[in-house]
């Protein structure tokens, strides 16, 4: 209804711009039976078969991804600096952070979910994928918002040309499919720089492969307008904190083939994401 009003208003305003033109009056509503293409001024003569129907309203949902380390905003601009201290007391820098999210969804109050299929590679390093237009949903209140960190087992078996092109694959011998995350940088050990590569994906144990994605569920939101932007925040510090206090000197590299490290990452990952600002506009 609002949009019909807006359209009528737009046509009316445009019409008034040309009042200097010689013009007949008539019906100016293109939806009317007696719409007059030459009429610039509406004379109230429009007739309709029936009243316009109630419009079924939808909301376009965009997810923005923001990152911080216990409140310190993190962007590529403060990569390469030893700005951050982990729960274990390790001072670290970040040189790369990219991760995959998939199956963005809304949980209804009746317990169903509205799936927005697809996936998005968030790449903080290059500043790509930080905003993702996930899809549409009916307006209304929802009990929760969710997504998968990484692919679930079914999706992980797919072939994605863009992810292959981004060199995002996970080696076949440790489960194939794709990385969930590549998170890299340096940490200080006895005053010297050491490297860490906190890579997450399928957990592999003596040839047995175990799914290792994270099903993230965040608090509910109401979709009130046609465009809703939902901010998802990652607290990077949580990767090192809870329940597993991460000792980088014990687990800094070669983690992809380390089953125990992979499962510790998954456990910590449940605490990493939170719901940030939600903005709504017509």
């Amino acid at each position: 209804m609002k949009l019909i009003t807006k359209s009528l208003l737009g046509i009316f305003l445009l019409g008034t711009l040309f009042t200097s033109c010689s013009k007949d009056e008539g019906c100016t509503d293109p939806a009317a039976n007696n719409f007059d293409v030459e009429a610039l001024k509406d004379d109230g003569s429009c007739t309709y078969d029936k009243l316009p129907e109630e419009v079924h309203e939808e909301s376009h949902i965009t997810f923005n991804f923001m990152h911080h380390f216990d409140g310190i905003p993190v962007t590529a601009a403060n990569f390469n600096q030893f700005n951050f201290v982990t729960a274990n007391g390790d001072t670290i820098s970040i040189t790369k952070l990219r991760y995959l999210v998939s199956d963005m969804r809304l949980y209804t109050t009746s317990g169903d979910s509205v799936m927005m299929n697809g996936y998005n590679l968030v790449d903080l390093t290059n500043g790509t994928g930080l905003s993702y237009e996930a899809g549409e949903s009916d307006l209304g209140a929802f009990a929760g918002i969710g997504f998968n960190f990484g692919f679930d087992t079914t999706d992980n078996a797919g072939n994605y040309l863009d992810l292959n092109s981004a060199n995002w694959n996970w080696p076949v011998m440790i489960g194939a499919g794709y990385h969930n995350m590549q998170f890299e940088g340096k940490y200080k050990f006895n005053g010297a720089d050491s490297l860490y590569a906190y890579h997450n994906g399928t957990a592999s144990n003596m040839g047995a492969h175990e799914q290792n994605h994270i099903s993230v569920r965040l608090p509910g939101i109401a979709l009130n307008e046609h465009n809703v932007v939902v901010t998802i925040e990652m607290n990077i510090a949580e990767w090192f904190r809870n329940p597993n206090t991460w000792d980088l000197n014990a687990n800094h590299s070669n983690l992809m083939m380390n089953y125990g490290a992979q499962k510790m990452m998954q456990a910590n990952g449940y605490n990493v994401f939170s719901l940030g600002a939600v903005s709504q506009r017509k």
Partner: peptide, 16 residues
């Protein structure tokens, strides 16, 4: 509705 709005604009200009 957006298409209608565009049509409306075109008609406005054309009429003039």
């Amino acid at each position: 509705l957006n298409i209608l709005l565009v049509i409306g604009m075109v008609i406005s200009f054309y009429s003039c």
